[in-house]
Design a protein around this nucleic acid. Structure first.
Lengths: 105, 105
DNA sequence: CGTATTCATAACTACTCGGTTATGTAAAAT
DNA sequence: ATTTTACATAACCGAGTAGTTATGAATACG
């Protein structure tokens, strides 16, 4: 998934809290996720749908309940992006440092 | 800055593109950033204001023009958060693996 | 000086989006 | 078979937000 989608998906606090809980506590049902989410069950379901489309969670149906679980590997584009940005910046910084050093001699 | 603010700030494509350009190309004026941004100059100024409040960029006034530059260090809460999430997940994974191994013997 | 340039701010608009209630669907329970 | 339970979907609404044009403020220029 593109990092753009990940940013938009994780920008919402409720959604991010759901993902965090799944990372900390493992697979949970919608009912369990709803209590403590601070919003209604339909709201939770919608958020879980968005998280799923972003690849951040997976679902498993068991009887009439659905278990959701985190897929933190999906965060890798985000990690790559931040690394890339800091690297670009560092590159220019090194180049500048080099230039100053050469000017100094 | 809290990672919540960073996610919300970087969720907008135009804003993220501005930050990326500043990381790649170094300090740039508002006029230069505006051409190629695909939106009007006031829009660019507003986005830069939001990026600044998030600590992602800094500005420097030089005569009548303002130079903006990236501060990728501000991304660290984001990096920490992703690390934390994957760690939580890994911890539970390791515990499970352990349990299975003990059950196997 | 007066004018032009560069950026920021104000005021407004259109749309997105997160929330709600209501309802549908499928599986368990009685 | 009927009812309850668990979740998803639909329809709708209010608030936030990204965009616009218009204008203000400050600095360079002729």
């Amino acid at each position: 998934m593109t990092s753009q989608v990940l940013f938009k998906t994780l920008a919402d606090p409720t959604r991010r809290a759901l993902f965090e809980r799944l990372c900390r506590e493992g697979d949970l049902t919608v009912a369990v996720l709803t209590e403590g989410a601070g919003v209604s069950q339909p709201a939770v379901s919608k958020h879980l749908g968005i998280l799923k489309r972003a690849g951040l969670v997976h679902d498993r149906h068991e009887g009439r309940q659905t278990h959701y679980g985190a897929q933190p590997e999906a965060l890798s584009p985000l990690i790559d992006w931040t690394r890339e940005m800091t690297e670009f910046w560092q590159l220019r910084f090194d180049a500048l440092e080099d230039l100053l050093k050469r000017m100094d001699q």
